[in-house]
Design a protein around this nucleic acid. Structure first.
Lengths: 145, 145
DNA sequence: ACTTTATTGAGAATGAATCTCAAAATCACC
DNA sequence: GGTGATTTTGAGATTCATTCTCAATAAAGT
């Protein structure tokens, strides 16, 4: 947790961006969340803590967090852009339910190993995986019958 | 080309959907396109042929084509949903070079098989895969040294 | 043809993301 | 710890892809 904040501060400095309150509040909210989130989630989360930050600011700040490498954009869900942690978090394979929006995470290492091999065969050096699939989760599959 | 049309007709019938002119015109436009397209592309393409179909109808029809398995939703581009052919087109794993933007396609079946197993273990029914990785291609990797 | 039922078109509505600009905050400098 | 140049913020307006509405139209079984 400490390290992430330090990295973020360094990143802002290196870009000559100011360490403002809203930027710190948003970062904290992001690190309280331990899996996926979208801008609306952050907005509600911050509001609950009585710290007010406008949606516009969150929309402006999230791309900075992405650029800093602490989070990354994931597959969209319910027509919203969603984000996930990258720093200190295992990579996951995501199954997104097209009916209810639920995200199911699954093991990743096996898949990554296989993909690493394929990439190596092409001389490609992977820095970030994007692995997922859309479909129906257990419940929604059942209800469709 | 013939087969795809036949499959589409069968699909519509199996769903008790009518074989209307707009639905056929849209299907033809889709099959004239041989790689990626979005709703706007289709709209312009159809208009050029003096066949008029409203945007609303295209928006309603594209999901049918997806459901029928002839096309699938791909990664969005310029904040528009884009689609790509699946029928008669191999699935690919995309390696995207973050330096030069090149897309390298790689085999897919092995990976898909593995992912199918993982999904099954979670009771998840996959309808569409999104598999890729970002990194450096052979050339760019070399040039960075 | 006729009738029922699904589909279409045109424009209105929605909603996530972006933009605008005056007011407020940061920070380098004194 | 104040001052001023420069960024950043908030609030609401705006944009634009997508979805919805509903009267008019078309499909297809009889």
């Amino acid at each position: 947790m400490k390290k992430e904040k330090e990295l973020y501060r360094k990143f802002l400095r290196s870009k000559n961006l100011k360490l403002t309150k809203p930027r710190l509040i948003i970062m904290e909210a992001v690190f309280e969340n331990h899996d996926h989130f979208n801008v609306d989630d952050l907005y509600e989360q911050i509001k609950k803590k009585h710290k007010n930050v406008s949606r516009a600011t969150i929309y402006r700040t999230v791309p900075l967090l992405v650029e800093s490498g602490l989070i990354k954009q994931s597959l969209r869900c319910e027509s919203k852009d969603i984000y996930e942690h990258t720093y200190g978090h295992e990579n996951h394979l995501h199954f997104i339910c097209i009916n209810c929006g639920k995200i199911i995470e699954s093991g990743f290492n096996e898949v990554a190993n296989l993909i690493d091999k394929l990439a190596e065969a092409k001389g490609f050096k992977i820095s970030e995986y994007n692995l997922g699939a859309r479909g129906l989760c257990k419940n929604c599959k059942k209800n469709k019958e």
